[in-house]
C-alpha cells in the first residue's frame, strides 16, 4: 500500500504516485469523535492525538494534523484566558500586551519544549510521530513573527502599531516574536513534526501594500527562517490570497511548498510557482458546509483539473469548520482520490 509520505515525496520531486496527496486539516471535529466537549478535548494531548489518528483512518486522507487551536501560541507566552465555544474553535480572550511596557517586559522562553504550556502539544506530536511510523506526514502550525501580535494585542491595535508606529516599539516586538518563532520551530521539530505550516497573513498583498511587504514583511520573514531553514516548511497566508506576494516570496525565501487560498486562481498560482515548488490547491471549506455532495465532487474535479497538469500538486483544506457535514468530508476525499488518481 502506498503511504501518504510516499505520495508527498513523489509529488514534491515531480514524480507521480498512485494519486496526488490529500491533506485534510480538522481540529474541533476531534471532540465529537471522542464524545468530549471541545473544551475538554483540547485539554489533553493524548485525546487530540487519538482523535487525529481516528479521523485519518476513518476518512483515509494522507496527513496527521496536530494543531489544537491557534490561540495555543498565545498561551505559550502567558495568555491565560481562552474563550471556548460548543460549536467552533477556541479564541484568545485576553490580550497579554495591553500597553507599551508590556512589550518591553515580554520575555521569550529559551526552551519552549520544556514549558508546561507546551506539554500537551508535545505529547500529541510524539504520539502522532510514533503511531504514524513515517507513513503519514505529521503537520504542525506556527505563526510568523509578523502575525503573532494579532494574538497578543488584537488585530486592531497591531494594525495601528504596524502601520503608524512607534516603529522602534514595533520592531522590538517583532524581534522578540521572531525569536519565539525560531525557538518554537526547534521544539516542534524535536517533538516529531515532519511538516511546519508557516502561517503569515501579513505575507499576503491582500493585507499589506507591496511597499510594506517588501520593506517590512519580507525582512522579518527572512529573520524568522534564516537559522531554521525552510526545507520542511509550507508558506500559508491564513487563507488570504498569495497573489502578487508569491514571486518575491519564492525568490527571497525559497519555501519548497505553497498553500494557495481558495480565492486564488489555482492555474495562475501554479504557473507562477512553475516547477520551483509544490503547490496546494485549497478548497473553500466554508462553502463545504452548504454544498451538496454532488457540488463538492464537481468542485474537487474542477480544482484538480486546474492544478494537476505539470505535477507537483496536492489537494488541501483550510482548518475545516466544525459545521461541515460528514457526508461532504467523505465526498471531498472520495472525489480527490478519483480525480487525483495518477496510476
Amino acid at each position: 500500500m502506498t503511504t501518504g509520505m510516499e505520495r508527498l515525496l513523489a509529488a514534491a520531486s515531480g514524480r507521480t504516485s498512485d494519486r496526488i496527496p490529500i491533506f485534510v486539516n480538522m481540529s474541533d471535529q476531534g471532540a465529537p469523535t471522542l464524545g468530549l466537549s471541545i473544551e475538554e478535548y483540547f485539554r489533553s494531548g493524548e485525546a487530540v492525538a487519538e482523535a487525529q489518528l481516528a479521523m485519518r483512518e476513518k476518512y483515509d486522507y494522507d496527513n496527521l494534523w496536530s494543531l489544537f487551536y491557534v490561540g495555543k501560541e498565545a498561551e505559550l507566552l502567558g495568555c491565560k484566558e481562552i474563550l471556548f465555544s460548543e460549536y467552533g474553535p477556541p479564541n484568545v480572550l485576553d490580550f497579554i500586551l495591553k500597553k507599551p511596557e508590556d512589550i518591553h517586559r515580554l520575555v521569550i522562553p529559551d526552551d519552549i519544549g520544556a514549558l508546561p504550556e507546551f506539554a500537551e502539544q508535545k505529547k500529541c506530536l510524539q504520539i502522532l510521530k510514533r503511531e504514524s511510523a513515517g507513513r503519514w506526514p505529521v503537520c504542525a502550525y506556527l505563526t510568523a513573527s509578523m502575525t503573532m501580535p494579532a494574538l497578543l494585542m488584537g488585530m486592531e491595535r497591531w494594525m495601528d502599531l504596524a502601520l503608524n508606529g512607534p516603529f522602534s516599539l514595533r520592531d522590538e516586538l517583532l524581534g522578540k516574536l521572531s525569536d519565539f518563532f525560531r525557538r518554537q520551530v526547534r521544539a516542534i521539530r524535536e517533538a516529531g513534526a515532519d511538516i511546519l505550516i508557516y502561517a503569515n497573513p501579513f505575507g499576503s498583498t491582500d493585507f499589506v501594500p507591496m511597499k510594506f511587504f517588501e520593506e517590512t514583511s519580507v525582512p522579518w520573514m527572512e529573520r524568522d527562517v534564516t537559522d531554521t531553514g525552510v526545507a520542511d516548511m509550507v508558506y500559508y497566508c491564513g487563507m488570504a490570497r498569495l497573489g502578487e506576494a508569491l514571486t518575491p516570496v519564492m525568490e527571497r525565501l525559497k519555501f519548497p511548498t505553497y498553500y494557495l487560498s481558495p480565492l486564488d486562481d489555482i492555474a495562475a498560482g501554479k504557473k507562477v510557482i512553475g516547477g520551483r515548488g509544490l503547490t496546494a490547491g485549497v478548497i473553500n471549506d466554508i462553502e463545504l458546509i452548504d454544498w451538496t455532495p454532488e457540488e463538492v465532487r464537481a468542485e474537487v474535479k474542477r480544482m484538480l483539473a486546474a492544478g494537476m497538469p505539470g505535477g507537483k500538486f496536492f489537494f488541501g483544506t483550510g482548518v475545516m469548520p466544525f459545521a461541515i457535514p460528514e457526508a461532504n468530508i467523505r465526498a471531498m476525499v472520495e472525489a480527490a482520490k478519483e480525480f487525483g488518481a495518477q496510476g
Binding site: 465555544s85 467552533g88 479564541n91 466544525f322 459545521a323
Partner: peptide, 8 residues
Amino acid sequence: LMVHTARG
C-alpha cells in the same frame, strides 16, 4: 470573523 459566530 468565524463561521460559528455567524451561523450559531
